[in-house]
Amino acid sequence: MILEWKKLARTGFVPGLLCAALLAAAFPAVNMAVRSDVYTALDGSPLAILLDANWQLMAMLNLFASVLGACILYHIEYAGGAMQKMDTLPLRPGTLFLRKFAVLAIVGAASILLETASLWGCCLYWFGGRPVPAALLLRTAGMFLPQLLPTQLLLLALSSLCRNLWVSLGIGVILIFMATILPLRGPVLSLLPFAAPFETGLASLSSGELLRSLCLLGAQLIVFAAAGLACQKIRRCM
């Protein structure tokens, strides 16, 4: 895995994705600073108010960052023909893919952590009188990651098949917009890739429903991982 990080030197991968995460984290703070009286006047859980007001844009930024990250991870392999070299080394075809996914997932987790910290800060600063249970906050953050992972896996499989950076970038962006335009509602449709990262209500579900959602996301992860690994075998012999 260290190898995959080393390969990203000087690509702008880490600074670029860090910027996206910082931007997403700054958004609720800026939004509150500008319109605090509107939001503090609302009834209900401060966390729910903040998520309703900001998460759509934050999730969108996370998705864009994932698209960009997945594209860069394979662009470096194809740009100088290094992919063929990797294919002639004693390395299992799927290993590279899974390591790259781990890199993308870690960046995703770090971004979500940063964004949750920002949301928590906003709760404390502007809703000081209405405490937010730490457990709810952690559960929310803890769910955002599994919501994002299947989409990241799918994006990575896509970019592993596209020699041209712009093709995978274009398809990724189109898929994000499709997900925001199509009315994907309900317990199953809303958890599909590209739609799931926008969902904010999972943490407040009953534990039975929560478990079902997690199983659904887990199943997606397994199916897409299997598909991604199969893609690597096909790609090598193309």
């Binding site: 390969k7 740009a79 100088g80």
Partner: peptide, 24 residues
């Protein structure tokens, strides 16, 4: 060495070789 050199353009020559060295 097949057809044309394969390398990571963003890495130095030494870093390129180091990646392969670690895999081997």
């Amino acid at each position: 060495f097949i057809e044309s050199p394969a390398y990571y353009g963003n890495l130095t020559g030494e870093e390129n070789l180091d990646i392969i060295r670690r895999i081997l």
